[in-house]
Design a protein around this nucleic acid. Structure first.
Length: 516
RNA sequence: GCGCGGGUAGCUCAGCGGUAGAGCAGUUGGCUUUUAACUAAUUGGUCGAGGGUUCGAAUCCCUCCCCGCGCACCA
């Protein structure tokens, strides 16, 4: 006892004496000395290394993951498990501690009976919460019924020089959650669950489409002409070719080239980039699924999307009723995905929300009507289709939580879709609204190169967009009639997990650079 | 870009003109089935940055930085 005590004092004394110069060597220009907390951890690292222990470890052959072992627990078997120490309960001659990772956590028990006095002291004094360790021992259940590992050998695997966030509250500071996502993942169960769910869902979407004979392809993210959507692109410069390039705003025009090339069922599930503002619903780089199915139309695409989203909900959300909850666990919103989903035309849903006579009104009368319905972000100077669209967004989209396929949208809004045979002022498309947001558009794709050129020119007149001549050239070689969809994956995940911000479903959301 | 709210110890937060605080984490002890372990003592702060007002500023005022929410742009 006294020996141990004496050792520790000697050790502490030695550290305090040697630390200042050590810090200067490690950090060339610190503005002020490191906090005491960090100094202690550095000293522990030094001590481990002095004793010839590999503080940043190496190979450790685990028999189980921490969470998997706990889930499928079997008592009385030999186990080797590695993980980060997440908490610790010291009881004199024995210590309980939890190790964990993305799979979950498991409790470990280390007793002085099982290791030398020296090793136990090393564990107590040099190993911290936050360090990675490997444990070798056997599984058992404690008196209180907790599945645990009785540790026979403890192997330090990596020293953490900084402490973990609050063990109870985790990280709540949004800035730390986003900038240092790893801390959020280590300390917040909810964040971990959402990201694991996202990863599984994205994998399942790929499985689902592969199962229906869609081929996943990769098309350029750097494009000469950024097409396929109306959005401001990010610009970059290609040094070798000495030309300006753009990050893609959509893969659409390349996927259609593949339809021309005979790829009858293709999809791409990857990032798009749009140089627009960030918000709860917008991240400048976001994940989009686009799929094209030759000889299908927008209604078959709607069936496909409906089936796929229900499949995901049943597989990962326990059914078609999705409940969004607040931090106290109270249900704030319920989304009912029960099939069949509502389908209604754009004109009908706008009339239902803004009045039967809406489409007969003058611009001024539309603005007045909108104001009376509480919509103030609307201006008489806009074109009719813009006023209609504003009414749609504010009065229909933002208020629709259960799924609705809004069909037959005015053609001005969608230049890449086929016009309706009966009414050529609208196009054969749907916009799927769930959770107050557009989750997915689907088209009967326009494959007439002459009409396509004219529609792009009409739109370019307003938006000064460049026409992708290579795309039109491809269409002139003949593109099969096809249905196409896009699904905003981030928003889909928000809807299915109840995340309130896109930043809660994107691992590393874009943030402004922090000043030096 | 505009408006509102926020930035205090490693983390979670209180303080809002008069000596910078709590809990957890940390350090040193006690404790051999604990689990937000318990328990005693204790360390730790350019109060986001820079100016100003004041005898005195974390606190009031100005400028700037970052984060959140709303609006605008957009999916």
């Amino acid at each position: 006892m006294e020996r141990e005590c004496g050792l520790s004092w000697h050790f502490l004394f030695a550290c305090l004496k040697t630390l200042p110069t050590h810090c200067l060597i490690m950090q060339p220009a610190p503005e002020h000395s490191e906090s005491e907390l960090l100094q202690f951890r550095r000293a522990k690292l030094d001590e481990l290394q002095k004793r010839g222990i590999a503080a940043f470890g190496g190979k450790f052959e685990e028999s189980h993951d921490p969470g998997t072992l706990r889930k499928n627990f079997v008592e009385g078997i030999d186990v080797k498990v590695a993980g980060r120490i997440l908490s610790r309960r010291e009881m004199g001659k024995a210590t309980f501690f939890d190790i964990g990772d993305i799979t979950g956590r498991i409790q470990c028990y280390l007793s002085k009976n099982d290791v030398s006095e020296e090793d136990y002291a090393l564990f107590i004094h040099q190993i911290d919460i936050g360090d990675f360790v490997g444990v070798t021992g056997f599984s058992f259940i404690t008196k209180k019924g907790e599945p645990s590992i009785h540790v026979k050998v403890l192997t330090p695997l990596s020293k953490a020089l900084r402490p973990l966030p609050d063990k109870w509250h985790g990280v709540t500071d949004r800035e730390i959650k986003y900038r240092q996502r790893y801390l959020d993942l280590i300390s917040n169960d909810r964040s971990r669950e959402i990201f694991v769910m996202r990863i599984k869902m994205v994998a399942e979407i790929r499985n689902y489409l592969h199962g229906r004979d869609f081929m996943e392809v990769e098309t350029p993210m750097m494009q000469d002409v950024p097409g396929g959507a109306a959005a401001r692109p990010f610009e970059t410069h290609f040094n070798a070719l000495y030309q300006k390039m753009y990050l893609r705003i959509a893969p659409e025009l390349y996927l259609k080239r593949l339809l021309v090339g005979g790829f009858n069922r293709v999809f791409e599930l990857n990032r798009n980039f749009r140089n627009e503002g960030v918000s709860r619903r917008h991240n400048p780089e976001f994940t989009m699924l686009e799929a094209y199915w030759a000889y299908a139309d927008f209604e078959q695409m709607a069936d496909l999307v409906e089936d796929m989203i229900c499949h995901l909900a049943e597989k990962f959300c326990g059914g078609l009723i999705i409940e969004h909850k607040d931090e106290e666990g109270a249900v704030t919103k319920t989304i009912d995905l029960t099939r069949p989903w509502k389908r209604a035309s754009y004109r009908d849903v706008v009339k239902a929300a803004a009045g039967e006579d809406w489409f007969t009104l003058s611009k001024e009368a539309k603005v007045e009507r909108a104001h009376s319905l509480g919509v103030h972000e609307i201006h008489a100077g806009d074109e009719h289709h813009e006023l209609d669209q504003k009414a749609f967004e504010k009065l229909v989209e933002e208020k629709s939580f259960n799924p609705t396929f809004v069909t037959h949208v005015p053609k001005e809004l969608v230049p890449l879709a086929k016009q309706n045979v009966a009414d050529d002022s609208v196009v054969d498309v749907y916009e799927l609204i769930i959770n107050g947001q557009e989750i997915s558009p689907g088209y009967s794709e326009l494959n007439d190169p002459i009409v396509q050129r004219q529609r792009l020119l009409d739109q370019a007149g307003e938006e000064t967009q460049k026409i992708d001549e290579e795309f039109l050239l491809a269409l002139e070689h003949g593109m099969p009639p096809a249905g196409g969809i896009g699904i905003g994956i981030d928003r889909l995940i928000m809807m299915l997990t109840g995340a309130e911000s896109i930043r809660d479903v994107v691992l590393f959301p874009q943030l402004k650079r922090k000043a030096e």
